[in-house]
Design a protein around this nucleic acid. Structure first.
Length: 933
DNA sequence: CCAAACGTGTGG
DNA sequence: CCACACGTTTGG
């Protein structure tokens, strides 16, 4: 408000000289960038005024010093750390370490009430409501800082913004119908500058986080859980929402709530534009999958496109945010994934642009919410501090080892084991989650993936040009699972995976944890064999699970949630994600063995970054006022904050105050037998289960194959779960999304991106994923030699001195390039940069010829000895000559030459005869050579 | 007084 | 649109 200015000034005055204009920008004059240039104060000053004038200047916030992020030490690897003089940088940027972005920036001690001129007095009171009225609250719209008690207008309630401590939309603004959207909530920084910033996602995430914290405190627990359960069986969303809401919302809040929602709704309503246009840009997926399977998802494209858009638009974001806010529901219940499912379905129906998509999501959510209105979920804001602290230490230790070593093995095993069905998570599973969330949409979604959903996907992708409809030979079985087709029957294989949409919020949390772990792990690099199989040692993995920070209950839990029933997932997720790594990095660095430093850095860095707002927890004391939706938050630039880490409880807290006898590990053993869908249902039961079910051991593999739209919630959910294997094949994931994701999945071992666009895949060029062992970029449209070069080139963001000249993909063991128009040029790069390459899929690569094989098996190459499986099926330029080259390979076990017109059976038999001297080979199928035994 | 770092404007 | 750079603010 107008007042604000004056008010602000006053505040400031106290401390700083008044002159100080509005704190932040106010002083633009000088401050203006390069102030130097503008020596004249006036000039600079001029600009500022305009903006600020609108609302009062915002008071700068300062770090809370308590949250995980604040407690951490600088990573020394992020851009900002590198800039610091202490790390040898020039010190020009003057920014906080990415890992140390405060999760809950507070008002400076010097802040005072505009009305009475006094500081916050909440400490002197015990009752929550009283505290709230005595604490300083900064309006995200007008920036005024006041004591709610000092406001004369008490008829109208303010809307508390859970995302940031002491932040609300004051009654005046609220009453005036102002919206803070355009403004940014205080405390939000330049997220956009950060590598991993995801605007939208962040938003989502925030909401997501709301969920309850720890135990369901009063309202949440009792009601929540019960409700949840019921919900699971029935309609979770409604139940949950209702329960939580009631609990939390205080009388006053109610009014505010209403207000909020209104606004939200307004936003929500937007018409969706349908993109309907088709699928991707036109690329058609090959009919057959490399493995011989027909390619799935022909239709996908359209969806995908939409998806991509999500992150991109900011404007939308705002809207979405609103929506999200509205949506907010308790996180634990909602899984980002869930929403997705529903969303997906909708999306399928509706095609929208990115923006639209986002909006859609939000809309969807909104819709859901609306449907459920009641659902308001509480948001739990996190109490960053506690969680963080706890988590960090504990988790760090355990997990480290596992990842790498096990990963592979585990993956495979786990896949089958754990989530056999789940991964694919049929829509149903997802739905379950969704339902929880709210969602009506739940449905299905899926896009297709999996199950057949429908429509679009089903049609086999056809990548026309390249692929001829050959039967596919089935490439080597790829470890990873799903994505790849099995040999043998090409056609049959097409399985469709169902996307796991369940991931959502919870995922995010876990992801965070995981990230940390991974980081640690990396650092350690030990590869101890961890096998984190579910059954095995929960310990390690547990850690991961722990990460999530369930707790943030507070107030949010109470009322705030209303907003939206967002899918908490995101928020939480995001935060978490970011969080993990921070503190430990240092160690990591040192250790990182595989990864060069830079790699590590990336890991850490990205992970750290989380979407801003979510994490913020308001001060413990949250008042009754309703929490406003995050709208204000202008997510666009959120600071990405590290996710808090808090170990999940070891035992299930019971209503009577005691704990259930069974320990978490016991529960996990049970959960390990459940499908992802079921896990999603379990997550709705209570906060504790919610966290436990996000244990990364239960989600080693997340399959979103052909999931039409990848939503922010989904992303956060993925991050929370920190999968070792992620299948994003044939999705419309955008570059921004993928980049964000990769940066937060430091432990990712298997990444399947077949059928995605090069634009999206190019995210790998700037992100680092040191531990990546398997990369599937089959049928990626636009991926040719030039792009391959970019993919394999060393990172570019390293600083001098730290530069790592090694390829970002140097640890790739399994590379799937089926259907790409690559030539020997790419092979040379591969040979040079992938010393560990063992399995190479070049099926359907029409430019591959005998010379290519000659290169791969030439003396002096690492591939000569490292290659164990090579798929050249449907490579029409490969002739019998290639077999003679393969004789040079010391470790070759499988050579797939099926459907290679120029390869004769005689040559194969000759090869077998000659090799039999040292290594017995046999013909598995026509032209499919495989080592016996 | 100083290190840290917030929030913004802008050049590329 | 992002990365950078900077004046100013903050806490100690």
């Amino acid at each position: 408000m107008a007042m604000s200015l004056s008010a602000d000034d006053e505040d400031y005055d106290s401390d700083s000289t008044e002159q100080q204009r509005p704190p932040n920008r106010p002083k633009p004059k000088m401050a203006t960038p390069a102030s130097a240039s503008l020596s004249t104060p006036g000039s600079t000053g001029v600009k500022l005024p305009s903006n600020r004038s609108a609302s009062g200047a915002r008071r700068r916030r300062t770090r809370c010093r308590k949250c995980e992020a604040c407690v951490r030490t600088e990573c020394g690897e992020c851009h900002f750390c590198k800039d610091m003089k202490k790390f040898g940088g020039p010190g020009r940027m003057k920014q906080s370490c990415i890992m140390r972005q405060c999760i809950a920036p507070v008002l400076p001690h010097t802040a005072v009430c505009v009305v009475c001129g006094e500081a916050g007095k909440e400490d002197t009171l015990d009752e929550e409501e009283e505290k709230f009225n005595a604490m300083l609250m900064e309006c995200s719209i007008c920036n005024e800082i006041v004591h709610p008690n000092c406001l004369k207008v008490k008829d109208v309630a303010g809307v508390v913004n859970d995302e940031l401590p002491n932040c609300w939309e004051c009654p005046k603004c609220n009453y005036a119908g102002k919206t803070g959207k355009q403004k940014r909530g205080p405390g939000f920084k330049y997220a956009s500058n950060l590598p991993g910033s995801l605007l939208r996602e962040q938003r989502l995430g925030r909401e997501a986080r709301d969920d309850g914290d720890q135990t369901p405190s009063a309202s949440s627990t009792g009601g929540g859980v019960g409700v949840a359960l019921g919900a699971t069986g029935l309609s979770p969303a409604g139940a949950l929402g209702g329960a939580s809401c009631t609990a939390t919302i205080s009388s006053s809040s109610s009014s505010s709530l209403s207000l909020k929602r209104k606004s939200e709704r307004e936003d929500a309503p937007r018409p969706r534009t349908d993109e309907s246009s088709g699928p991707h840009t036109g690329r058609l997926p090959p009919l057959l999958t490399p493995s011989g399977l027909p390619r799935p998802r022909p239709e996908i494209p359209a969806f995908l496109r939409k998806k991509r858009k999500l992150f991109e638009d900011d404007d939308e974001e705002e809207q979405q945010e609103d929506a999200n806010a509205r949506r907010k529901k308790k996180t634990w219940r909602d899984d980002p994934l869930i929403p997705r499912l529903s969303q997906v379905k909708k999306e399928d129906e509706e095609d929208e642009d990115e923006e639209e998509e986002e909006e859609e999501h939000s809309e969807r959510e909104q819709e859901d919410e609306e449907d459920d209105d009641k659902l308001t979920v509480k948001r739990l804001s996190r109490t960053d501090e506690g969680r963080r602290n706890r988590l960090k230490e504990e988790e760090d230790e355990g997990e480290e080892e596992d990842e790498e070593q096990d990963e592979e093995e585990e993956r495979s095993s786990r896949r089958s084991e754990r989530s056999p069905g789940p991964l694919r998570a049929t829509p149903a599973s997802l739905e379950s989650d969704q339902s929880l969330g709210s969602s009506p949409r739940a449905g299905p979604s899926s896009e297709g993936g999996g199950s057949g959903d429908g429509g679009p996907e089903r049609t086999p992708p056809t990548r026309t040009s390249r692929v001829s409809a050959h039967p596919h030979p089935h490439p080597h079985s790829q470890p990873q699972a799903q994505a790849q087709p099995h040999p043998g029957q090409p056609q049959s294989r097409r399985r469709r995976r169902l996307p796991n949409r369940e991931l959502s919020s919870e995922l995010s949390k876990e992801l965070n944890l995981e990230i940390q772990r991974t980081e640690d792990t990396l650092a350690n690099e030990n590869r101890q064999p961890l096998r984190g199989d579910p059954g095995d040692g929960p310990d390690n993995e547990d850690e991961a699970s722990e990460n999530e920070e369930p707790k943030r209950p507070y107030r949010n839990g109470t009322g705030g949630n209303l907003l939206g029933g967002l899918r908490d997932g995101r928020a939480g997720d995001l935060d978490r994600v970011g969080g993990g790594g921070g503190g430990e990095r240092p160690h990591l660095r040192a250790r990182e063995m595989n990864g060069t430093p830079w790699e590590l850095r990336h890991f850490y860095g990205p992970p750290q970054i989380t979407p801003l707002g979510f994490n913020r927890s308001s001060p413990a004391v949250r008042p009754p006022p309703p929490r406003s939706p995050p709208k204000c938050v202008q997510m666009e630039r959120h600071v990405i904050r590290p996710p808090p880490i808090s170990p999940p409880p070891e035992r299930l807290p019971l209503a009577d105050g005691h704990s259930h006898v069974a320990q978490r590990e016991a529960w996990l053993a049970i959960f390990s037998h459940m499908t992802h869908q079921d896990l999603c249902v379990c997550m709705r039961v209570c906060k504790t289960w919610n966290r436990w079910c996000c244990d990364k051991r239960l989600w080693t593999r997340i399959d979103l194959n052909r999931c039409k739209s990848i939503t922010p919630l989904m992303l956060s959910g993925i991050v929370r779960r920190q999968p070792a294997t992620l299948d994003l094949s044939w999705t419309n994931i955008s570059k921004k999304q993928l980049s964000w994701l990769i940066n937060r999945l430091p432990g990712l071992r298997v990444l399947l991106l077949s059928g995605c666009s090069w634009v999206a895949v190019s995210a790998l060029c700037t992100s680092s994923c040191p531990l990546l062992r398997t990369l599937d970029v089959q049928w990626v449209e636009g991926l040719k030699d030039a792009q391959m070069r970019d993919l394999l080139s060393p990172p570019t963001d390293n600083r001098p001195g730290q530069m790592d000249t090694r390829s970002k993909l140097r640890n790739i063991v399994d590379l799937r390039l089926a259907g790409l128009d690559i030539t020997d040029s790419s092979l040379r790069l591969i040979i040079k940069n992938m010393p560990l390459l063992s399995r190479l899929d070049l099926s359907y690569c029409n430019h591959i010829n005998d010379q290519s094989i000659n290169l791969l098996t030439a003396a002096g190459t690492t591939t000569r000895d490292s290659l164990t499986e090579v798929n050249l099926s449907v490579c029409n330029r490969v002739t019998d000559q290639s077999l003679t080259y393969f004789k040079r390979c010391g470790s070759i076990c499988r050579i797939d030459l099926r459907f290679c017109k120029q390869v004769t059976r005689q040559a194969c038999e000759r090869f077998i005869a000659e090799m039999s001297v040292s290594v017995p080979f046999g013909l598995r199928e026509d032209k499919l050579l495989q080592k016996l035994s």
